[in-house]
Amino acid sequence: MKFAFYPGCVAKGACRELYSSSLIVAERLGIELHELTNASCCGAGVISERDPLLSDSLNARTFAIAEELNLNIMNICGTCQGVMIKAQKNIDGDIKRRDTINGILKEGGHQYNGKVKIRHLLHILIDDFGLDRLKNLVVRPLKGLKVAPFYGCYVLRPSIYSDFSYPDRTTAMEDIITSLGGEPVSYDGRFKCCGFPIIMWNKGHSLTMSGISLKEAKEKEADCLVTPCPLCNLNLDSYQPEINKIVQMKLDLPILHLPQLVGIALGIDGKDLGLHKHIVSTEKIFDKI
């Protein structure tokens, strides 16, 4: 099993523990990764607001690079996943657009042929690797650990750009948590927005959005949250001291990246998974399991 690995900007920036934990978990699972060091940012739904064709062109270039390697793409960022799928659907659904974009890419020696599949680690674990196989590799079951999944908008909505057949009813994250021996927490906030996209201009409301879901998870007795999107992680973890003030309670909820949770159950050392890099201490997770 080999993928063209697209880490995304945040895993190379503020959430480098996502990058390192993804590499170590992939290695442990026997998933071979070829990092796309020449691929640009996906645009995060921001560049497309300035110019949709520019955004699609940059993504088409990434797709073309993966196609040249004859590999499908593996994302570890939910936002990258949603944005890339949207770009691919825009391009594949409009032959004229694809021709225009290929005209732009041609000078750089790239051509996008519509063959590459774009997958998130979340989907790869379930569809390609398989949860039974994953379960067999668990050496440190998350027994007794109540884990609240936090999906992040971009892997869910709009549903036409989602890999889930029924995003409103998906239990993908819950299934992974269960396979690792943990107990998934059921709460409405799992499908909600963390508020990150407006953190730079409407901090109060952005963090209120985070607070609504975190408070609900806490009330449902979650020990920690896990998310497949590092942007969600940034809001929920880095700003948790501010969120505590908004919800008027000490949340003390560690926010893990998906590969970190998998890594814990696979018995990988917490430091190697970068668990010490979170703002909210993750130590209590080990007290529980």
Partner: peptide, 30 residues
Amino acid sequence: IRMFLKGKNPPIIHKHIDEMDDVKRIFKRF
């Protein structure tokens, strides 16, 4: 400060991706 103390600050020296010239060329078209 909180992120810096945990080593979560983005790298001080920001590196560009490989084949940056090609990305710049695409931007120029737009």
